[in-house]
């Protein structure tokens, strides 16, 4: 198998109050995969995500991104490789215009002039927001802001796109449009979500995190049909929803 994009080994972390958040967690994500990270509130999903780009440092264990270990020296390159799209686009879009915001990351990488402009254009095209380039972010609809937030991260050409609750607060049409866009991207995706149908639609593989540990890792369809496993970790499919039959091999 190819070298993993994400290689998390034995990572433990406790918050300053001493409350353990991650307890010896292992996770591998391989190039081209789309993986859903599922689990109840407080399972440690966000804590894990913040370890991937070195915002948090593990008390023990190690995190590598495409072979590069996360350390103080490697932080700039790690943050290029790991693109995190946060849940609230208002937190992510802080520059006066969409174009400035999409340019923020690559400019921090040292890109200038036409190279920077090309990169911005490429990212905006990927999520179909070119027409919004000169608009201020607060004039956009929520779905547009979510797409721009993804563009701001794509502009850094990440090796893995980490999405925190990508479908939250979207109306059904925006939700479907975003799914179409995510399916069209040729990038490895780790998607943190409570939206189990979205996970079933977009991710062939899912990982269930509970109490700081990986408790299940396999084909999304298989996991979602395992009602005992799901129930044990406070996960439930919405009323009336059944996982459509599909390949059960991740």
């Amino acid at each position: 198998m190819s070298a993993p994009v994400v290689d998390v080994r034995g990572v433990s972390y406790a918050y300053p109050g001493g409350q353990p958040a991650l307890r010896g967690l292992d996770l591998h994500v391989h190039p081209g995969e789309r993986v859903a990270l599922l689990g109840p509130n407080g399972a440690g999903k966000t804590t894990l995500v913040l370890h991937l780009n070195g915002i948090l440092t593990p008390a023990s264990g190690s995190v590598s991104i495409s072979g590069l270990t996360v350390s103080r020296q490697s932080l700039p390159e790690i943050r290029r490789r790991v693109g995190i799209v946060f849940q609230d686009p208002d937190d992510q879009l802080f520059m006066p215009t969409v174009r400035d915001d999409v340019a923020f990351g690559p400019a921090n990488l040292g890109l200038r002039g036409s190279e920077l402009a090309d990169r911005v254009h490429e990212a905006m095209t990927a999520v179909d927001v070119q027409a919004l380039a000169d608009r201020p972010p607060h004039h956009l609809s929520f779905g547009q802001r979510r797409r721009v937030a993804i563009a701001t991260v794509l502009a850094m050409r990440p090796e893995i796109l980490v999405l925190d609750e990508p479908s939250s607060n979207l109306d059904p049409a925006s939700r479907r449009e975003l799914a179409d866009i995510l399916e069209s991207l040729e990038v490895t995706v780790l998607m943190v979500t409570h939206d189990l149908p979205y996970a079933a639609q977009l991710c062939e593989r899912s990982v269930i995190l509970s109490d700081g540990r990986v408790v299940a890792d396999g084909a999304t369809g298989l996991l979602l049909r395992n009602t005992d496993l799901m129930g044990a970790h406070r996960l439930e499919l919405p009323y009336g929803f059944a996982v459509p039959p599909g390949p059960d091999v991740a």
């Binding site: 780009n53 915002i55 943050r79 992510q92 923020f104 990351g105 921090n108 850094m156």
Partner: peptide, 23 residues
């Protein structure tokens, strides 16, 4: 708290204390 989240998002995109220079 929003300020803290914005800072987190900035750091995640390589912000290191300086705004990119404007041409």
């Amino acid at each position: 708290e929003r300020g803290e989240r914005v800072h987190l998002a900035m750091v995640s995109r390589g912000y290191a204390g300086h705004l990119p220079a404007v041409e």
